[in-house]
Structure formats: C-alpha cells, structure tokens
C-alpha cells in the first residue's frame, strides 16, 4: 500500500480541480440565490450574464495587453475585471428597468418572470456573440503554475506528481475574498441588512421604510459582480466558450437548490457539494486503487460515469434533494 502517493493523486485529480470548480459554482449560485431571495424567481439568464461579463472582461484584457500592461505572474484579466463588472452591472440594471420592473409592479406570477428571464437570456446570448463570437477563447496569461508536476516530484521524491495551476489557486483565493466581502456586507452594513430584511419579509421591510427599488438595484449589481467574477474565473481555469456558460446553468441551479434557494451559506455549500460529486463520480479511480490495493486487478477504469455525463450528477443531486428535502439542506424559501 502506498498511501502517500494515493493522497497526492487524490489531491491532484480530485480535490484541487473540484475545489476550484466548486468555488466557481458557489459564486454563480450565490448570484442565483440572491436574485431568488429578493426578486423571487429563478434567473435563467444568469449563465449568459456570466458569459457577457466574461466577454467584456476578455475584451478589456486584450486592450490592456495591447497597451503592454500586465500583472506579472497574475493574469491580466484581474485588472480588467472592474470593467467587466461595470458593464455587466449596467446591462442587468438596464434589463431590470425595461423588463423585470414592469412584472414586479404587476405582482406577476414568478413563472412569468422566469419566462422573461429566458427572453433576457436570448438577448444576452446575442450580445455576447456580437461582442466576441461563438469560438473558444483563451485569455489566461502570467505564470501557468504555482506548483508543477516536475518540481513537485523533485521536491518530494514521490512517484506521483502534483500540479497546482495559478488559475486554480487564484480562483480559490478570490472566491474566499469575495464571499467574505459579501457576508460582511450582508451582516454588517445597513444596506446589506436591508437586503436580508427584504428577503425575509417584504411587507414588513416596506413598513420599516426600506426602499424596495434600492434593494433590487443593489441585488442586481451584486449579482452582476458575482456573475462576472465567477465567469472570468471559470474562463481562466478552463477556456471561454459562450455555450459552456449556458450549460453551467444546471449545476449552478442544482447548487442553489441543494443549499436552499435564497440562502447564501447554502449556495456555497451546494456549489462545493455539486463540484466534488461531479469530479469524484467522473474520475477514473483505477490509479488510486493501484496505490492502495496493489494486488487488486479490477477490470475497468473504476469510473462511475463518463465525463460526458457530468451534468447527470448535478441532475441526480437535484432530484434527490427535490424528493427528500425540497427546501434544501439549509432551509431556503418555502416550497
């Protein structure tokens, strides 16, 4: 038995990728859950909002690169993020003004808002295509690795290598900072508390003199920032392709529902739960079994599901939660 190599392999192929992916999902799910908590509908345009924000960030990155500005070992995209966030915030505020506000005033059924968000999804999808096209874009620059396989082997003398990409490390660090900032805002500032109050009890918030339109605007701006950051980190880590951002909608919804729609802590837990399940279920465990049980010769790759079915994992998690605990693990809004 070779526990050390097995642990390194698990870290390398499961824990690190899943942690980075989980952080991206968590940021996405936070946006979905905040919008749900305040505006009370599932925003189908969230994936395309992420794509739009990332597209603007990429354009700004290219602009900075053309000017010769860089962040050294860190990706230039970090410098471009504020531009992406500002553009996305302007975009979602414009859609709120022109689309959602009308239905809010009418007190329309939530499903009508969901449908309107599908229309907005079309629009954002089109704008993203206009901006950057449908092709895959790579925009990561700076140092590729915090730790690469060769240096790790030389450092430790182990057979199994460990790679820790800059983008993965960055994703985790930024996610921690963003989540801390968000919770500080929600729990410590008057505006943040007003948002939570509005989410808790809309009528009482009105009686207390909280301005609903201001709360809604704040929510959209925060959601836009979260979406742009999540999208950019996802794009840096993998690659940017607009259609992937539509597909990531399902794991994001799964994460938000698992955690309990409207509950920010739940969204984060849900993001990591979905990511770890997805990676663990689609990873071929043969290599690790080889370290742990050298005498065992299994017939297959010990892969539960092909990577093509990774969405099925989010779906199954979603179904299980809907069956057993529709309000989510952390008790979100009512069924």
């Amino acid at each position: 038995m070779d526990i050390l190599n097995a642990v390194v392999a698990i870290l390398n192929f499961v824990v690190i990728p899943a942690a980075a992916y989980g952080a991206q999902l968590a940021l996405g799910a936070l946006g979905v859950t905040l919008i749900y908590g305040i505006l009370r509908f599932s925003n189908f345009a969230h994936g395309d909002t992420m794509a739009f924000g990332t597209a603007v960030t990429i354009l700004a990155t290219w602009g900075l690169q053309a000017l010769g500005i860089s962040l050294g070992p860190l990706p230039t995209a970090l410098l471009a993020l504020p531009v992406g966030i500002a553009a996305t915030a302007a975009m979602v505020l414009a859609t709120d003004r022109t689309v959602y506000r009308f239905y809010r005033a009418q007190k329309a059924k939530p499903i009508i808002l969901v449908m309107a968000s599908v229309g907005v999804m079309f629009l954002m999808n089109g704008f993203t295509r206009l901006l950057i096209g449908v092709d895959e874009q790579r925009f990561a620059d700076g140092a590729r690795f915090i730790m690469d396989v060769r240096s790790f082997r030389e450092l430790t003398g182990l057979k199994e290598g460990l790679a820790f990409k800059t983008t993965q490390g960055l994703t985790i660090v930024i996610a921690v900072i963003v989540v801390w900032a968000l919770f500080w805002f929600l729990n410590r500032t008057k505006s943040g508390k007003a948002m939570r109050a509005y989410s808790d009890n809309e009528d009482l918030a009105l009686l207390s003199g909280i301005d609903p339109e201001k709360v809604v605007r704040m929510t959209w701006i925060i959601a836009a920032a979260l979406a742009t950051i999540a999208g950019t980190l996802y794009g840096l880590d993998k690659a940017f392709k607009p259609f992937n951002y539509f597909q990531i909608l399902l794991p994001i919804f799964a994460a938000a529902i698992v955690g309990g729609l409207g509950n920010p802590v739940g969204a984060i837990a849900g993001g990591f739960l979905v990511a770890f399940s997805e990676v663990a279920v689609t990873y071929p465990w043969l290599k690790i079994a080889g370290y742990l049980f050298p005498d065992w010769q299994p017939g297959g790759l010990l892969q539960l599901l092909g990577t093509e079915y990774k969405f099925a994992v989010s779906f199954v998690i979603l179904i299980v939660v809907l069956l057993f605990r529709p309000t989510g693990l952390f008790r979100g809004k009512s069924v």
Partner: peptide
C-alpha cells in the same frame, strides 16, 4: 413543488 423547480428539472433532463 414550486413552479420554478419543474423548469429547472426539465432543463436537466
């Protein structure tokens, strides 16, 4: 369940 859930579940299936 809530009307949104059917939408999300059908998206998945």
């Amino acid at each position: 369940l809530r009307s949104d859930y059917l939408a999300i579940a059908t998206l998945g299936i």
